[in-house]
Every structure is written in C-alpha cells, then in structure tokens.
Measured scan of single mutants.
Amino acid sequence: HNLTITQGKLFFHYNPKLCLSEIHKMEEVSGTKGRQERNDIALKTNGDQASCENELLKFSYIRTSFDKILLRWEPYWPPDFRDLLGFMLFYKEAPYQNVTEFDGQDACGSNSWTVVDIDPPLRSNDPKSQNHPGWLMRGLKPWTQYAIFVKTLVTFSDERRTYGAKSDIIYVQTDATNPSVPLDPISVSNSSSQIILKWKPPSDPNGNITHYLVFWERQAEDSELFELDYCLKGLKLPSRTWSPPFESEDSQKHNQSEYEDSAGECCSCPKTDSQILKELEESSFRKTFEDYLHNVVFVPRKTSSGTGAEDPRPSRKRRSLGDVGNVTVAVPTVAAFPNTSSTSVPTSPEEHRPFEKVVNKESLVISGLRHFTGYRIELQACNQDTPEERCSVAAYVSARTMPEAKADDIVGPVTHEIFENNVVHLMWQEPKEPNGLIVLYEVSYRRYGDEELHLCVSRKHFALERGCRLRGLSPGNYSVRIRATSLAGNGSWTEPTYFYVTDYLDVPSNIA
C-alpha cells in the first residue's frame, strides 16, 4: 500500500525493539523526510534493546553428524571492536523451508527459537588472519532439518551509529543413524509349514526405512522333555500350542467401542483428552525405555581390526524358502538304536541362519518350516543398504507352526516275539517326523474274553527296548493296539495285532 503524509511529521519514542533503520525507511515511504526535528525521533529510546544489523554474515563451514552440527561463519568486528559482546545463534526444527525470524513471537518477546549466546573469538592483530567464530550444536535429532541463523550482539553506541551483522536463515539436516526397533511384532501360524509375521514401523526411523531383515531359527525343545518319565503317576503330560491366527481386521481397528449394538453396526467412541494424553505418555515412556535398553543392555560386537582377528559373527547367506525346513542338525536320541526319531534339535552355532529381506511392506510369510516346531524370529529395521547396512537392534518374537495331521501315527506293522515265561516283546517304529517329539506310547492289549488293559511306555523305555515287553501273560489269544502321544496330543491307534500265548508248562520236552 502507498502511504503519503502531505502535512505533519513523524514522532517515535520509547520503541526499544524498533531499529532506527526501520524508522528511516518509514520517513522515505511516507514522504516526511526532512520535516522531523532532532528530538522527534529519539536516538536513545528507539532500538536500544534490539540488534540492528546492516551487514550480512556468511557461514564459512558446515559439518553434520547424526546428532551434531558444527558451524563456522566469517569474522565480524565493528569499528570499535570492544562493542562486540558476542553472537546469538538461533535454531529450531523446520520440516519445511518457510521459516521466518519472527515465527511464534508474542507480545512478551518470546519466540519459538532456541538461542545460544556465543563469546567472540580472540581478536588477531592481523586483519587478514582473524579467527572464524563458530559453535557445535549438540543433542539434535537424527535425520531432522533445522533452520539456523546467527547475528551479532553489540553494545549501545553513544554516537548512535547503527552497526551489526546478521546471516540469512539456512537449512541444515542432520545425518541418518540406526533406527529404533520395529514396533509390535506379531507372529502367527496359518499352516503346519508357515508363519505369518506382521509389525509396525519404528517410532524413530532416523532416516528413510529402506528394508527390513527377518531372521528365523528353529528352537530346540526343553531338555526336561527328553529326561522326564511322563508315565509316572502324578506327572502331567506336557503340551505345546501353536500360535493362533490373526483376529479379523475389524476387531483390530483402534479407537473402536468394545460393545456392539445388537441391531447392527455401531460407531466408534472418540477417545477423551485424558485417554489420548495417557497414550502419549505411555508411548514416550516406551521410547525412553527402549533407548535405555539399547544403550545399557546391548553391547556392540567388536569388529575385526587390522591384526587379522576374525569377526566372530557368522556370515549372512541367503537361502531359498524351500530350504528352511531342514535348518537344524538332527541327532538321534540314543545312538545305539537307529530307529528312534531325530527330534532332539541342538543347533550348531556355526550354522548360517536363513533370512529374508523385506522391502516396502511390514509383513512376511515364512514358508518351508517344520510342522509343530518353535521358531525364534528376529526382526531388524534398516535405513541404508549400501555401502553397508545400517540397521536397528533386533526385536524378537516366537511362534510355533501348526501340527501336521497323521504325523504322530505309527507307520509300519507292530511285530512281536514270544519268549519263555510268557513274555512277549512288542516292537514298532517311532514316527519319523512327529509333531514336536514323542513323549510316550500307549499300549492297549486284551486277552479274548477279558477286559482291555493299558500300559504306558516312556520315551526312554522305548529307546532301550525298541518297544516294550509284556510279562506274566496268561495263555490265550491276544490283540494289541499302540498309539503315540506327542507334544500336540495323541496320534491314531494302530491296526490290531494278534498273537497267541501258550502255557509254557505244557511245552513238550526233548528229553527222552
């Protein structure tokens, strides 16, 4: 807008934040220059609390790290170098490059900038070799853009010569660093050979998330399962459950009422301010606690030095998902009996873990797994792929695949051998790939016309006998059925096997 004052003059007093240069501009645009008398524009009460600059400061050096910015700028000295009290560095987070010096300023003089007072450097006698002032900004957020400017702080001049310097606002972004852990990993099994893994992005990506790394490792069953005799009275049979499938998407929606109208769909109840505040506090606490764990609990591995020492970490090797089922080394339970199943799973520490690289999504279907087997899954978020990966501390989750139908069934015939004193040795093959492992066998036998009897055969007993022995049988026709019990439950009964026990007292003698 054009402003013209045809008559009258300007009068400025007691404006401590208004620089004289701005008042002189007002004289020019209003056409009143030359009308004012000496005392109409006070030299001592206008701009006496402001830094009124008329020179431009330029930054000469900028260096960044993930949490620091090192700045240096060209030296500046007023005509009387004693008038320079120091520099004021202003900075704040700036997602967009549209910041002005006066953003967030209120009537009390406060604003949204963080201000650092910096002492002037030592003055050199040689004007050509003056030290460049600077400042190291610490405690910054990774991968965050900051708006920065600097200006001088000078003393009051009796001659009211307006001098000083100020830089333009520059924008500097800190470097990326390792992201925080992925949030809320959930693993479920939808079949006997697959596990579905879902997660949420890290709360602090500290860069642009480029991919996720998912490692999985087959877990050995508890050692007590191999040692305890679950045929003993009072000892509860062990059981394991597989990871249940995901709930429906509708039930997972946030901010939804727990109660549904019987007449149909209901609208979600909005969260109160107290609920939102509580969630923010919980989120802040979780982030602080995660940072504490990362800094205190997890110790970084030592990389190899120039002395030739090897990095103890196993090298990563990509495998196809079809090879995942046989990740671990199978060892027989008892070496003397080769027909026992290889369900003991000690994992070799030198073995390469299978892994998958996930790009542009937060889910993965891990296939080719062994049925009813526990897996430990390790999830890392990465925001750099080359020249070397920059990934987060791992988040861990466990899951067990679903049982395989008929995996616990005894394959092959049940054979028998009759000894003296009416002892019958029953023999059968253990299931080759049971659900988890076989903890015991149930032997059901009966003599024709009598009630059915049951015998429990422990895992250890089966390994020693290759089956079991029935003792003290009365003469007669017998039928026997056997079924295995694994961590997933009972298998199917075998087809009945028949044998006849004679009275050993009636056996004919070869003595003449």
Rank of each mutant, 00 (worst) to 15 (best):
R400T: 03
C468T: 02
Y504R: 13
Y478G: 01
P332A: 10
G234E: 12
T502H: 13
S251P: 14
F298P: 02
E260P: 11
G436F: 12
V439E: 04
S348N: 14
F337Q: 06
F419S: 11
A399V: 04
W242Q: 14
E451Q: 14
L321K: 14
V324D: 06
K317C: 12
E227T: 06
N421C: 11
L470Y: 01
I410G: 05
Y292M: 03
T288A: 04
D273F: 14
V501C: 09
F298I: 03
N477D: 14
L321T: 13
L369C: 03
G374L: 10
V397R: 14
E378R: 08
E290P: 02
E433F: 15
S203C: 15
W493T: 10
S320H: 07
P475H: 14
V443N: 01
K432I: 15
N383P: 01
S474Y: 14
Y498G: 06
N326G: 03
F419R: 11
E217V: 07
N326V: 14
E389D: 07
G207L: 00
N339A: 10
A394G: 06
L237I: 13
E420Q: 03
S239R: 14
K460V: 15
Y441L: 01
F372L: 05
Y375F: 08
E430M: 04
Y498C: 06
H454T: 10
K361T: 11
S341I: 13
E265D: 05
S223A: 12
Y498V: 13
K460E: 07
S268R: 15
S363Q: 09
Q384E: 09
C266L: 08
P205M: 12
L505M: 07
S262N: 06
G264F: 04
T494R: 03
V329G: 06
S492T: 09
V397I: 01
D506T: 07
N435I: 00
W216V: 06
F226I: 14
T347F: 08
L225G: 03
R313F: 07
R400S: 07
P387Q: 10
Y396C: 09
D450Y: 13
K236Q: 03
S458N: 07
V501N: 09
F246E: 10
F285K: 02
Q384R: 08
F289A: 01
K287V: 03
I438D: 02
E227R: 07
K278T: 04
R319P: 10
S257P: 11
E465F: 14
S348T: 06
H371E: 15
A263R: 14
L213R: 15
V327S: 09
V324L: 09
L464M: 11
E420Y: 14
I377V: 10
R316A: 14
E281S: 06
Y212S: 12
G234S: 12
W242F: 03
V299W: 04
